[in-house]
Amino acid sequence: MSALGVVGGVVQPVLIVAGSPLLVGLMRQVRARLEGRAGAGVAQPWRDLRKLLRKERITPRGTSEVFRFAPLVLVATTLVVAVVVPFVATESAVDPVADLFAVVALLALGAVALALAGLDTGTAFGGMGASREMTILALVEPTLLVAIFALSVRVGSTNLGAIVSSTLHDPARVISPVSLLAAVALIVVIVAETGRIPVDNPSTHLELTMVHEAMVLEYAGPDLALVELASAMRLSVFLGLLANLFAPWGIATEATPLAVLIGVLALVVKVGVLGGLLAAGEVFVAKLRLFRVPELLAGSSLLALLAVAASFFLA
């Protein structure tokens, strides 16, 4: 466990927790401005969370521990990812966990916890959300792993630190067809996993069309705060991952205060820009019919497979 790793392991989760609601606020603000609105301000999600923490906790009748612990698991999985993935520093606090597969599986575990909570309520909506979420998760998995495959093959490792370092040392790789194809596939995956348009509509008010939201309809107060925080964190984690897999520049490679500061700033800027672009892009697309989503995901799988093929034949 290196000093840099420890610094990263402390700075990153703090940054992600503090910054994620702001990222969501920023994305809402971008959308509001494009719609001609003034918007509630970047800090509004933090105000929402603060208020939710002050509210009453409610246990819906008939729910079990699964319902109560799911928000904790959801936040905890994301928190572990925030600690181990090289966001600010190239070295990981817990290197044997900073594996792409492990990180992906951890994020999936969070989604599973929430899906089980949705089923645990025994409501039609909870089950519906869980079923949709799991269908999407099952179909996202191939794209995700094949895209990871494409990225790892050139490095010969799925260790995130190794991938990031290798890109730092050989920047030319980023503009290779492999990277570009894998990037597009990963973007589709991120859109699907974080429930953005065109897969899910984060601001829908219609129970019957919801995916993520349908599972959390029964959560109130602090539990809801955790769920909201976790979904914001997942969004930043995914965007951070995307940023550092393809453009790791700025990340701290040594444990000096200046390097870490630059690393933090670089991450904030990168994730902010990606979030802004994602929010702006969302304005221009509509939500797909539920059973067109698999077609989108199949298309992205194909891109990922192409990326692997390219990595072999162009290597």
């Binding site: 509001a32 509210k55 008010h205 309809l217």
Partner: peptide
């Protein structure tokens, strides 16, 4: 709506009464 934009004052319509204040 966008003209009066009630959301800018921190009010937001939500789907479930569990989420509501």
């Amino acid at each position: 709506g966008p003209v009066h934009d009630g959301e800018r004052y921190g009010a937001r319509l939500v789907a479930s009464p569990r989420h509501a204040d």
